[in-house]
């Protein structure tokens, strides 16, 4: 799914989870839209802020859920991300795309929360895919793993595999997990991930490789 572009997602589109890389002119249109929204928010327009939330809520909630692994905690965290954005919008200097700044705030907030939760010995109580909402809500172009094989047993097998992937992903080192989510799930480009994480290009590539290898090793039993 590489190439999915967060900035290109309009409020309506964000509900249906796009999977196709947009053409450059659409991407720049999204950038223009974001810049306008930022300007309006800075001028105290709360409706602009709400619009921004609706555009990016699925992306940010998806990130926090995959990072934290608990829906309630992830929702609270995603809300916190947007509140931080509202508070810090005056300090946004407009360098690069707006959503890379948003994602940077989101990933830092996630890392801080993970540290905090570890200190409190927090355990994920609800697997990511347990809630029907997590199944895509029926509107998006979701192609579940179950659909690759027919029959009830195959469906159950596919669900087990999804649960295993979600679980093992949640057990990865947070730095590795973040890169897998940003690149392999949300489909951000290398240049966007570099801006979000502040890593050097070589470090990003090698760390991403190690993250994928770690996940592959954890899923070895399921891949046979």
């Amino acid at each position: 799914m590489p190439g999915k572009d967060a900035a290109s997602v309009t409020a309506a589109e964000s509900q249906s989870a796009p999977t196709v890389s947009p053409p450059p002119d659409e991407r720049s249109a999204a950038d223009v839209r974001d810049r306008r929204l930022v300007r309006r928010i800075r001028n105290g327009d709360d409706r602009a802020f709400e619009e921004l939330v609706r555009i990016y809520q699925n992306r940010i909630f998806g990130l926090t859920l995959r990072m934290i692994g608990n829906r309630q905690e992830a929702e609270d965290l995603a809300q916190e991300v947007f509140l931080t954005v509202h508070k810090a919008i005056a300090s946004y200097r407009g360098e690069g795309r707006f959503y890379t700044w948003l994602y940077r705030i989101a990933s830092n907030t996630c890392k801080n929360r993970i540290k905090y939760l570890r200190g409190r010995n927090f355990h994920r109580s609800v697997p990511v895919e347990d809630n029907p909402e997590a199944q895509g809500g029926g509107d998006g172009p979701v192609v579940p793993l179950q659909s690759q094989i027919a029959g009830p047993e195959a469906m159950a097998q596919g669900t087990r595999l999804q649960d295993a992937i979600s679980r093992e992903l949640a057990n990865l080192d947070p730095e590795h997990r973040l890169l897998i989510v940003l690149r392999d799930i949300q489909g951000l480009s290398y240049s966007d991930i570099l801006r979000i994480t502040g890593l050097q290009e070589g470090t990003l590539k090698s760390r991403l490789h190690r993250a994928r290898v770690a996940l592959k090793d954890r899923l070895a039993d399921y891949l046979k």
Binding site: M1, Q15, A17, D46, F49, E50, V53, R54, Q57, N58, I60, F61, G62, L65, R66, E75, A78, Q79, F82, L83, V128, E129, E133, A134, Q135, G136, G137, G140, V142, V143, P144, L145, L161, Q162, I165, S166, L169, I180, D184, I185, G187, L215, L219
Partner: peptide
């Protein structure tokens, strides 16, 4: 396999809660 995980959607009242 990771890319085929279902997309996650925020709760319907997410934006209202944030505001």
């Amino acid at each position: 396999l990771v890319a085929e995980l279902p997309e996650v959607e925020a709760p319907e009242d997410f934006a209202d809660k944030v505001t």
